[in-house]
Every structure is written in structure tokens, then in C-alpha cells.
Design a protein around this nucleic acid. Structure first.
Length: 671
DNA sequence: GTCGGAATGA
DNA sequence: TCATTCCGAC
């Protein structure tokens, strides 16, 4: 096996270029690192190692010295340098390879995002720089399918609809031009590379690169963005169950390499050069799973790019949107992942019968609009919030994955209901939490669905109360362990669950500062709330929803805090889940409306009645108020009547709710 | 060795 | 913003 440490480590060529860090005048550390990595003369100082993007600093002091020299900071040392590197953790440009000292790993996808923000929808109208570097095929390069089941999943996930989404030929030419990008510099001078590029206009480079590629014969300088000689894209497809070359996708001949613009890749219609050209130079360890992300759809970033040459015609758009929707269904993504497009026809979900595809579900390249489907959507999808997901429990049961998509926190009303019931059963949440064990052994169990803790929650379950679930959070090391967990599109990538738990930990407290609206999930109506994708979807992957009401933070005893294996969440348990958990058979009677849905309907119904009645009542009260009759009834907060209904209404709501709850419970039993 | 907060600088 | 510097904690 050739290791990345060899001269030919195929880290994307563009990443070495200074212009890949727009906005930064000075060389950035990660660029510098890449520079060192690409130069053989420094391979005894720093070198690629292990996984794709992983490198080891063999001589920390020397690296620091070099860095200090570059930055004219003679005082530089590894301690300081490593601090700088650690800042990349948060930015997810880098992360630490735990357990291996001086070993870090680039997050390729993040680099793309960081350096090509124009990809974002937000930059609609922005021209796509011709110098846009090739990007890897997809966000999953870190998660090679290592088991047959993973391969299967990848295969299964290749949704037919995705293929229809292709826009053949749209970008092939340009992609070829860009994809064949090769380093213009000879790489002999560190400084020359760093400083010469900034002024370079993209368009000027293209011909040059093309020419170079044409003459160079492709293999070039080893890691000049060339296709790995032994791992062509085609080979990858064969290996990982990709298109397999029979779908009629184009095969381009560039610089002697047969490259396959990936027809189903999110990048296919992306302004970014497709993988074809920089054909993901694959390290043996490269976790590229074309199949997995092929299931996804073209980049949404395209559609709204007015100034771009890339555009969908209405049919394309429609198909794309449908496919997206399909994906949402197929992958149990939150309904909020649905686009808001009129006329979009939600296709009949095509159930995947071989397990869930959470990771793939959000299989989106970093090039794609992060605001549509980012990691937290895919990693925390609330399948239960949507009626079509009512049979999810069953699937979870068969899911081969360790990861389980999370239902959303309950809506306020349901929390109210549960809270009421909780208080009735006089079992406190903390009691629940403390009675749970957080052993990592539970992680594996979660693969089959809920981890029920019937001994401690039995009574609660029967009352429809939340069940505590232990969800494995892979630590970075477990990136490799949990192969198909690139939930984020990497960005979403990818990142939510695959990032080191310390990151989670860190952000548990910082979230509140950064995302004051983290309660956004807790809307009165979970389903409705989930239909507003524009609210909170943006790049930050860790913009995770606030912990659900019964969130139980990892206890220090479960680990050292930085490396906890799991977080514990509670989640609402639907009837099916409850039955599963209690050993009963899942109810498959399709005529049975999910309890939650019925709650919702009932609630809506009551709401309407309430509102109507309230109006009446308020009218009366107002009349009474004018007469000074209600002065003493304002024992409350003093909040205006507009905000809070009169106590009377509260009581009625409560009573109604109670009644409805009881009734629905009965109905459910009958089901 | 690693982490991340804090202050600070360019 | 992106480090740099310092430092306490693990």
C-alpha cells in the first residue's frame, strides 16, 4: 500500500495554492503545512500518513521553526504552532488524530467551504471563479465503506431519481479546463508559490494549466492533482458500487487520464469542477463512497445562481427538487429539509429496504448550499415529526448503522402533555438520567433502534413519556469506526456526529451564546416548525437544536469529558416505539393514525375552538374590565392579554388537553 | 501531549 | 481574521 506519505500523496493541488484562501493576505498555517507536506525535502519533518488528509509532524520543533521563519516569528515553537492548529479544529479545517501524537488530519471538505464561499447560495450572482479548484468527489471521503454492508447501503442508496437529475454536458468543458488544473509553479520555492498567486486571475490560469496538463501527460509531479494511477474514478466506482460506468456518463480524456465526471455527484452540476478532473486522488484509505453520495442530488447551490452560467431549466429544477424531497423521505431527514417551492410534487417515498441512510441522506458536497441541509438536519432529523415517518421505528430496528436519526424535541404542547404526565407519575427527569448507565456498550445497541431502559422508564413509557436513548457520538477516531456517518455533508457536513465529542462538549455551553434561538425546535407544532428551512439553516454544523427538555448531559463519569462516547438524549416515544421497546409488535395498521398526528389534529381542532371561544370570552372580559370587575384576577405576570390568555382559558386548555390525551390514548390502544 | 480560554497584535 | 503568546488543566 502506498501511503500518503509517499511523494505521490494526492492532496488536491488547489489546496496548496494561496488563492485557495481568498481573503487572507498572509499565508495561513494550513497552507504552510500543505506546502511542507508536498515537498519531499520536508518529509522527514512532516509527512502524510494514514488516512486521507492525515499527516504527522515528525519534527515538531523543525516545523515550528520553519513556520516561525516564514512568519518572521523566531519565537515560534510547537506549542504555539499547535495552538494555531487547534484553532482549526473549530473551523474544522483540521482535526486531531487522537492517540497519534503530532498527527492531524485535514478536513478537506471544510477547506472547500472555507475557500469557496461563493458556492453558497447566499452569494447568488457571484461569478464562479474559473480558478475554482477541483474538489473531491464528495463529502464522504473520510468514510470508506469498509464492510460489505456498507457497500450494500451505498448501492442501495443510488436513487434512480438522482440519475434523472443529471444535466449532461453542462459543465464538462469547463470542468475539464479547471479539473486539469495543475500547479503552475514548480514548487521549488515556497515563497514563490505563496506570493505569486494572489493576483492571479483565474481565467489566466486555465489555459496555462490546460496546456501543462496536455503536455505533461498527466502523471505530473505526483501530487499535482493527478488521478491516482492506481485508483481511477472508474476503479473507485467498481470498488464502491458506484455508477459502474454503465450509465452513459461521460468519460473525459484529460491529460491521459480517463476521468469520469460523476453523473450523480452533487458536483455534477456544481459550479465547482467535478471530481472528474481532480479525480479524487485517492489514498488507499480514502473514504470515498461515490455510491453513498451519488444517491444525492445535484447541488442546490446551482439553481439560485442567477449570474452563473449554470442553471436549471424548469424541468431540471423540478426534478431536482423532487429528488431532494425524495431524499428527505428516503433518508428520514427532517421535513424542514424540504424546499419551499411551489409546485414541487412530493414523490412517493421510495423506501430503502436495506437500512437507513442517515449519512447519505445529507450527502451533500460542501459545494452545496449548506443552508438547506446541513449536518444538523441530517443528524438530527425529526422523523417522528412527520407522518410519513411513522414506521421509522421498524426500520431502525433493522438498521445496520450505529447512528440513529433523532426525532425533534417535542413541541411545546406535547411537552406540556408529557410534563403533566411526568408529574403525575412523579418521576423526575433527573431521576431517569441518574438511573441510566452510559456505558459505551449501549452504543452498539442503538444501532437497532432505541435503547430502551425499561427498568427505569417502564412506567413512563407506558404513559407515553420520553425514553432515554443513548446515542453514540463518534469521536474522531470513530470516524473510521463508523464508516457511513458522514452525516453532514460534511459540512453538515459531515460533521455533526463525526466530530470529536470534545467539540460537542465545547459547544454545549457555547451554543447558548452563539445561537440564542436554539430553542427553535421547540415549537408548538413540531411539524410546522420543521417546514421552515430558512430559519436556521446555515453553515454552522453545530448549530444543533437545544437539548430536548429531557436532555441529560454526559456525565463526567462517562468519560474524561473530552472523549465521551455518547450523549444521552431522551426522545419522545411514539406508540410504535413504545411497543417495540416493551416487546410488543409494532402496529402496522395503516388506518391507525400515529398518536402524535392525532394529537396534533386534536390540538389544532381544540385550538380553533379555543380561539373562537377566547374571542368571545375576551370580549366579555373586556367589557367586564371596563367595568373594573377583573382587577384582582390579574395575579399573573402582568403580561398583556395579547401574550397570555386569561387563566380561564388556560384551565380550559389544560382540561381539554387532558381529556384529549386520555381519549387519544384509548384510541391508540384500540388501534 | 493536548486542549482551549484569554489577551493581544497585525 | 488569524494567528501569537501565555497559561492552567487534563
Amino acid at each position: 500500500m502506498k501511503t500518503p506519505g509517499d511523494a505521490g500523496f494526492p492532496f488536491p493541488d488547489w489546496a496548496y495554492k494561496p488563492e485557495s484562501s481568498p481573503g487572507s493576505r498572509q499565508i495561513q498555517l494550513w497552507h504552510f503545512i500543505l506546502e511542507l507536506l508536498r515537498k519531499e525535502e520536508y518529509h522527514d519533518v512532516i509527512a502524510w500518513q494514514g488516512d486521507y488528509g492525515e499527516f504527522v509532524i515528525k519534527d515538531p520543533d523543525e516545523v515550528a521553526r520553519l513556520w516561525g521563519a516564514r512568519k518572521c516569528k523566531p519565537q515560534m515553537n510547537y506549542d504555539k504552532l499547535s495552538r494555531a492548529l487547534r484553532y482549526y479544529y473549530n473551523k474544522r479545517i483540521l482535526h486531531k488524530t487522537k492517540g497519534k501524537r503530532f498527527t492531524y488530519k485535514f478536513n478537506f471538505n471544510k477547506l472547500v467551504l472555507v475557500n469557496y464561499p461563493f458556492i453558497d447560495m447566499g452569494s447568488a450572482g457571484a461569478a464562479v471563479p474559473q480558478s475554482a479548484p477541483p474538489v473531491p468527489t464528495g463529502p464522504h471521503f473520510r468514510f470508506p465503506p469498509s464492510t460489505p454492508s456498507d457497500l450494500q447501503v451505498s448501492e442501495v442508496l443510488r436513487s434512480p431519481s438522482s440519475e434523472e437529475l443529471r444535466s449532461p454536458g453542462m459543465f464538462s468543458g469547463r470542468r475539464i479546463a479547471r479539473g486539469s488544473v495543475s500547479d503552475c509553479s514548480d514548487g521549488t520555492s515556497v515563497n514563490s508559490e505563496i506570493e505569486d498567486g494572489n493576483g492571479g486571475v483565474a481565467e489566466e490560469r486555465v489555459p496555462e494549466r490546460v496546456a501543462e496538463r496536455g503536455g505533461g501527460g498527466g502523471s505530473g509531479g505526483g501530487f499535482r492533482g493527478a488521478v491516482h494511477p492506481r485508483l481511477s474514478h472508474e476503479a473507485m466506482f467498481r470498488m464502491y458500487g458506484g455508477p459502474g460506468g454503465h450509465r452513459g456518463h461521460r468519460v473525459s480524456e484529460v491529460g491521459g487520464h480517463r476521468v469520469h465526471p460523476e453523473p450523480l455527484s452533487p458536483y455534477t452540476v456544481s459550479p465547482l469542477p467535478g471530481p472528474g478532473l481532480l479525480a479524487p486522488p485517492l489514498s488507499p484509505a480514502l473514504s470515498m463512497t461515490p455510491g453513498s453520495h451519488l444517491a444525492y442530488t445535484p447541488s442546490p447551490s446551482l439553481s439560485p445562481m442567477p449570474g452563473s452560467i449554470f442553471s436549471f431549466n424548469p424541468e431540471d429544477m423540478q426534478r431536482y427538487l423532487q429528488a431532494h424531497t425524495q431524499s428527505v423521505y428516503n433518508y428520514h431527514l427532517s421535513p424542514r429539509a424540504f424546499f419551499h417551492y411551489p409546485n414541487i410534487i412530493v414523490p412517493q417515498p421510495q423506501r430503502l429496504d436495506k437500512g437507513m441512510s442517515g449519512p447519505q441522506g445529507c450527502d451533500r458536497g460542501p459545494a452545496e448550499r449548506p443552508s438547506v441541509l446541513n449536518s444538523h438536519h441530517s443528524s438530527l432529523p425529526p422523523p417522528h415529526a412527520h407522518p410519513i415517518h411513522h414506521h421509522l421505528g421498524e426500520e431502525q430496528h433493522h438498521s445496520p448503522f450505529k447512528f440513529k436519526l433523532q426525532p425533534p424535541p417535542l413541541g411545546r404542547k406535547q411537552r406540556d402533555i408529557q410534563g403533566r404526565q411526568a408529574s403525575l407519575s412523579s418521576t423526575s427527569t433527573s431521576g431517569l438520567g441518574s438511573s441510566l448507565s452510559f456505558g459505551s456498550d449501549l452504543s452498539s445497541a442503538s444501532g437497532s433502534g432505541l435503547v430502551s431502559n425499561s427498568s427505569s422508564t417502564g412506567s413512563l413509557n407506558s404513559a407515553g413519556l420520553p425514553k432515554i436513548k443513548v446515542e453514540p457520538i463518534s469521536d474522531i477516531e470513530s470516524e473510521e469506526e463508523v464508516e457511513v456517518t458522514d452525516i453532514s455533508d460534511e459540512e453538515a457536513d459531515e460533521e455533526f456526529d463525526v466530530f470529536p465529542s470534545h467539540y460537542h462538549k465545547h459547544h454545549h455551553h457555547s451554543h447558548h451564546n452563539h445561537y440564542p434561538h436554539s430553542q427553535k425546535y421547540q415549537q408548538p407544532n413540531g411539524t410546522d416548525a420543521a417546514l421552515h428551512p430558512d430559519e436556521d439553516l446555515e453553515e454552522e454544523v453545530f448549530k444543533a437544536p437545544a437539548p430536548p427538555p429531557f436532555f441529560i448531559p454526559p456525565t463526567p463519569s462517562s468519560g474524561d469529558g473530552r472523549r465521551g462516547n455518547s450523549i444521552v438524549k431522551s426522545e419522545p416515544v411514539e406508540p410504535a416505539d413504545m411497543q417495540l421497546a416493551s416487546g410488543g409488535l409494532p402496529q402496522t395498521n395503516s388506518q391507525c393514525i400515529p398518536l402524535k398526528l392525532r394529537f396534533k389534529r386534536r390540538w389544532d381542532q381544540d385550538q380553533h375552538m379555543e380561539e373562537a371561544e377566547d374571542k368571545k370570552v375576551r370580549g366579555e372580559e373586556r367589557a367586564g374590565e371596563r367595568n373594573g370587575m377583573l382587577e384582582e384576577s390579574g395575579s399573573g405576570s402582568g403580561s398583556g392579554e395579547a401574550e397570555s390568555p386569561p387563566p380561564l382559558a388556560h384551565h380550559r386548555v389544560s382540561a381539554e388537553l387532558h381529556r384529549a390525551t386520555a381519549q387519544l390514548s384509548l384510541e391508540n390502544k384500540e388501534c
